[in-house]
Simulated assay, not measured.
Amino acid sequence: MIDATVESAGVAEPTVPTETQGSIVEEVFYANCSEAREAGAAPIYAGDPGYSSKLDRDGDGVACE
């Protein structure tokens, strides 16, 4: 994505980024399954925010089962 700027009176003003397909992507990280459970996020499925293969011991696509 390229940030365009508008020059007015010699001052550059950054444009506001638009949302992609109406949603904002949030990055979530859990250090371990205990942390994910405390946040109420377990189980975490592959593709869900916070999923990590490190948390998926048996490799079935479901972490912190």
Rank of each mutant, 00 (worst) to 15 (best):
G22C: 11
V16D: 10
A9W: 07
A42N: 12
E38G: 13
T18M: 06
G61D: 06
G61I: 05
Y51E: 06
P14Y: 00
A39N: 13
A4L: 09
Y45H: 11
G22D: 11
E13Q: 04
E27S: 12
Y51P: 05
G50H: 07
P49T: 00
A39V: 05
A9G: 13
E19W: 10
P14M: 01
G50A: 11
Y51D: 06
S52W: 02
P49H: 01
L55A: 08
T5M: 09
A31N: 06
R37N: 12
Q21P: 01
V6P: 02
R57N: 14
E38A: 15
M1L: 03
G47W: 10
S52I: 02
T20F: 11
C33W: 10
E19V: 15
E35A: 15
A36P: 06
V16Q: 12
F29E: 05
S53W: 05
T15P: 01
A41N: 07
F29P: 00
A41I: 00
S34C: 04
A46G: 04
S8I: 01
T18H: 07
V28R: 13
E7I: 10
V62W: 02
A4Y: 06
G40N: 11
E7L: 14
P43N: 01
P49C: 03
D60Q: 08
R37T: 15
R37P: 06
A63R: 02
P43Q: 00
A9K: 14
P17C: 02
A9V: 06
S53P: 11
T15L: 11
D56A: 02
S8Q: 03
A12C: 02
D58C: 07
Y30V: 08
G61S: 10
A4S: 08
A31E: 09
E19S: 15
S52Q: 04
V28L: 10
I44Y: 03
C64P: 05
D60A: 08
P43K: 00
A42S: 15
E13G: 02
P49I: 00
E7A: 12
G61P: 07
I44W: 04
